[in-house]
């Protein structure tokens, strides 16, 4: 069977939901004729017509605001941000309007706001950001960050069907680099469930997004030294899978928290607090964080390489922690 790329998996997920449910539609910049800057919506204009694949003006705030309005009237909009970096232009609509509707007056806002995030492609400070934590800090939103083609498809479907606003970050580095065989039947990946990518006994690496692959590469390298990493792919950051996280920590007793996002206020800090609160007595070593430094994402290759967490960082920290 043919392998499906991560980007194609997202496209399939949207396509199938649109075929099944007339309320689902896409709006965003260059999503129609052009099929999206990264071709996530390629071919959809021809299939679904210009009122379900809507090319908008360059107005991120209006894209999300209009999605909210349509959702309140019973539609299921998917709002594309051409790059996740530009979600800042829609911040107010997402965090104030969408996120607080249900809490204030009981109305659900079933929108999906999706866009490519992450670095590694020399996009510089405005085409490489990982903006997830702005939204993880906003009660009322859900935030997902798939790392595999299977999850990309399963999570976009879950996000579209979800009764609440979901922010869906697609890692652009993975778009065409990651592929796998996908089942032909309809499947979803539930929001809020982690996945153990590699079971192990010595150290838990809790991570998400493109860093899952760095963790797996590190695990392969450490295997030769007899260090057995367990790689947990969080998949959803809000809500997150506390049960799987704690179970893993209780099993391995040592933990590395890894993300591409910057350090202060990153998800690792939250995880460290939870582990300390609820599994402290199981720990046999300090909780270690591996993250990007607290700087913007730089453009020049040597700077960006320095910025992004590397396999060698994980190997180094894991050895140290193993010996602890």
């Amino acid at each position: 069977m043919a392998l499906t790329t991560y980007v194609e998996a997202i496209r399939q997920g949207i396509w199938e939901e649109m075929e099944k449910d007339e309320r689902v539609f896409v709006l965003g910049e260059d999503v129609g004729i052009y099929g999206g800057a990264f071709k996530v919506t390629a071919g959809m204009l021809e299939k679904f017509g210009e009122w379900r694949i809507i090319d908008t003006p360059i107005s991120e705030s209006a894209i999300v605001g209009a999605a909210i309005g349509a959702a309140l009237m019973g539609m299921r909009p998917i709002a594309e941000m051409q790059f996740a970096d530009f979600i800042s232009c829609a911040f107010d609509q997402i965090t104030n309007f969408a996120a607080k509707c249900r809490y204030r007056w009981g109305a659900g806002v079933p929108i999906v706001v999706r866009g490519p995030s992450g670095g590694g492609v020399h996009g510089g400070p405005f085409h490489s950001q990982n903006p997830e934590m702005y939204f993880v800090h906003t009660p009322g939103l859900k935030v997902v960050c798939p790392s595999t083609a299977y999850d990309a498809k399963g999570l976009i479907k879950a996000a579209i069907r979800d009764p609440d606003p979901v922010i869906y970050f697609e890692h652009k580095f993975l778009y065409r680099r990651v592929k796998e065989e996908l089942p032909t039947d309809d499947f979803v990946v539930p929001i809020g469930k982690a996945s153990i990518r590699r079971p192990g006994t010595d150290i838990s690496v809790l991570t998400y997004g493109a860093m899952v692959y760095n963790a797996l590469d590190a695990a392969k390298e450490l295997e030769r030294e007899g260090i057995d990493l367990e790689v947990v792919d969080l998949r959803s950051l809000l809500p997150f899978d506390k049960e799987t996280i704690l179970e893993s920590v209780k099993k391995t007793n040592k933990v590395i928290l890894l993300h591409e996002d910057t350090r202060i206020g990153g998800f690792a800090g939250e995880l460290a607090a939870i582990i300390s609160d609820e599994a402290f007595e199981y720990l046999d070593g300090p909780i270690r964080r591996i993250t990007a430094p607290d700087t913007p994402v730089p453009y020049s290759p040597p700077l960006e390489e320095f910025f992004l967490p590397k396999v060698s960082d994980i190997v180094y920290v894991a050895r140290e922690l193993y010996a602890y």
């Binding site: 020399h122 400070p125 730089p298 453009y299 020049s300 290759p301």
Partner: peptide, 13 residues
């Protein structure tokens, strides 16, 4: 993307 560029490699184009 060189050090001598206007943003010293921090930003591009």
């Amino acid at each position: 993307a060189r050090k001598t560029g206007a943003t010293r490699g921090k930003d591009g184009n």
